[in-house]
C-alpha cells in the first residue's frame, strides 16, 4: 500500500500521532511512536484469513473493507492452511478460527474444516448468506464426526430488514436469516454476532428484538454476542475514526493483565504472511513473520488505534471469555 514518506526525525518520541492517507484516499491506521509491545504468552487462538478480503457482501462497517472486488488478500489454499495446522500442534494451539471476507466463498472451506476438526475446535465467522441446505447438512456431518465443536458465528447487524441492510446491503437480511434457519434445522446453535449501532443502555431492548426474530426461524435459545464498533475501514468513514488520544501507552499497561489483549495469545495466518491479530490484517506494523513459528516468536508493538479498542473491550474476537485474569 502506498505510504507518504514521513520524516521521523522531526517528531517527538511519544504521544505523536501520524495520520496517514493513501493516494486512494482511504482512511488508514494512525500510528504512535514509542508504543509498548506485547509478547505472545501462548498461542491459544490461531486465526486464518481463509477468504482473504473477498466477500460477497460490501458492508458499510467492515473494518477491513472486504468486498467482491477487494483482492488485496486472496483465498488461502487447503495446503497453506494444512502447513499452519501442522506447525500449530507443536505450538499448542487451543482453538482455530476462520474469517475473511466470507469463508464459504473459499471453495476448499469444507475440506479445510475436515483437516482442522481432526486437531481441535473450529469456529467460522460467516455472513450465512451462502448457506444452502446441502452445505448446512455437510457442516453438521463434519461436526458429528469430530470430538471437537464446530461453531458457526453469524454476523447479523439488525433486528429488522431495514436496520441490517442499511449496513450490510440490500437482500442481506433475508439471506442471512435463511442461512441461520438452515443451520438451526441441522442442529447447530450458531453464535449470532452484531456490531452495536445503538446507545449502550438500549442493548437489552435489542437483545429482546434478536430473540424474537430468531424465534421465528426456530432458534429458541439463541447465543447472541454484541460487539463494540471498530472505528476502522468503512466504519471510520461511516461514523468517525479513532482520535489522537485513543492509543495504548506504556502507562496504561502498568498493572494491566496483558492476557486481555488478543495478540498475547493469538496470531492470524494469511495467504501471504502472519499478522498479530485479525483486526490488523493490513497494518504493516502488525506483521510478525512469514511462518507461524516465526510469527509466534515476534512481539507485537501496540502502535495501532485498534489496539485501544482491544485494551478497553478485551479480546472481543474470541467466542467466549478467555479466562484472562485469574493468573497465578
Amino acid at each position: 500500500m502506498p505510504k507518504r514518506p514521513v520524516n521521523r526525525r522531526v517528531l517527538q518520541p511519544s504521544f505523536l500521532i501520524l495520520k496517514r492517507t493513501s493516494l486512494l484516499g482511504r482512511v488508514e491506521l494512525a500510528v504512535i511512536d514509542d508504543a509498548p509491545s506485547v509478547a505472545l504468552q501462548a498461542l491459544d487462538e490461531l486465526w486464518f484469513q481463509v477468504a482473504g478480503t473477498v466477500c460477497n457482501l460490501r458492508c458499510h462497517h467492515c473494518f477491513i473493507s472486504c468486498a467482491p472486488d477487494n483482492h488485496s488478500f486472496w483465498f488461502m489454499t487447503r495446503e497453506q492452511v494444512a502447513q499452519a495446522l501442522e506447525e500449530s500442534v507443536e505450538l499448542g494451539v487451543k482453538e482455530y478460527y476462520f474469517t475473511g471476507g466470507e469463508p464459504f466463498m473459499n471453495q476448499e472451506m469444507e475440506d479445510i474444516l475436515v483437516d482442522t476438526l481432526a486437531l481441535g475446535p473450529a469456529t467460522v465467522l460467516t455472513n450465512a448468506t451462502l448457506m444452502p441446505p446441502r452445505r448446512a447438512r455437510r457442516l453438521a456431518q463434519l461436526s458429528r464426526a469430530s470430538i471437537y465443536t464446530l461453531e458457526l458465528r453469524v454476523s447479523l447487524d439488525g433486528i429488522t430488514r431495514e436496520m441490517n441492510d442499511a449496513i450490510r446491503g440490500e437482500g442481506a437480511f433475508d439471506r442471512c436469516v435463511d442461512g441461520i434457519e438452515q443451520l438451526v434445522k441441522v442442529g447447530f446453535l450458531p453464535i449470532i454476532t452484531c456490531m452495536r449501532s445503538w446507545p449502550e443502555h438500549e442493548t437489552e431492548r435489542y437483545l429482546e428484538g434478536f430473540r424474537r426474530l430468531l424465534s421465528t426461524v426456530g432458534y429458541e435459545r439463541p447465543r447472541i454476542k454484541i460487539l463494540p464498533p471498530l472505528l476502522m475501514g468503512e466504519e471510520a468513514k461511516r461514523t468517525r475514526a479513532y482520535d489522537e488520544t485513543e492509543r495504548v501507552t506504556h502507562e496504561m499497561l502498568e498493572g494491566f493483565d496483558e492476557g486481555q489483549l488478543l495478540c498475547s495469545r493469538a496470531r492470524l495466518v494469511t495467504a501471504r504472511g502472519v499478522q498479530a491479530c485479525p483486526i490488523l490484517l493490513e497494518a504493516p506494523s502488525a506483521r510478525v513473520g512469514d511462518t507461524l513459528t516465526e510469527g509466534a516468536r515476534t512481539p507485537v508493538t501496540l502502535k495501532e488505534s485498534a489496539c485501544f479498542t482491544c485494551y478497553l473491550s478485551g479480546a472481543i474476537c474470541s467466542n467466549s471469555p478467555s479466562g484472562a485474569g485469574g493468573d497465578r
Binding site: 507443536e90 471437537y148 479466562g323
Partner: peptide, 24 residues
C-alpha cells in the same frame, strides 16, 4: 482448579485439543 496456568481457564471436552493438553 481451571488449568495449570490459570485458575479460571475453562477446559471443556469439545474445545480442548489433545495436543494442547499434552503440551500442558
Amino acid at each position: 482448579h481451571g488449568s495449570p496456568r490459570r485458575m479460571n481457564e475453562f477446559l471443556w471436552e469439545t474445545t480442548t485439543p489433545t495436543h494442547f493438553l499434552e503440551r500442558m
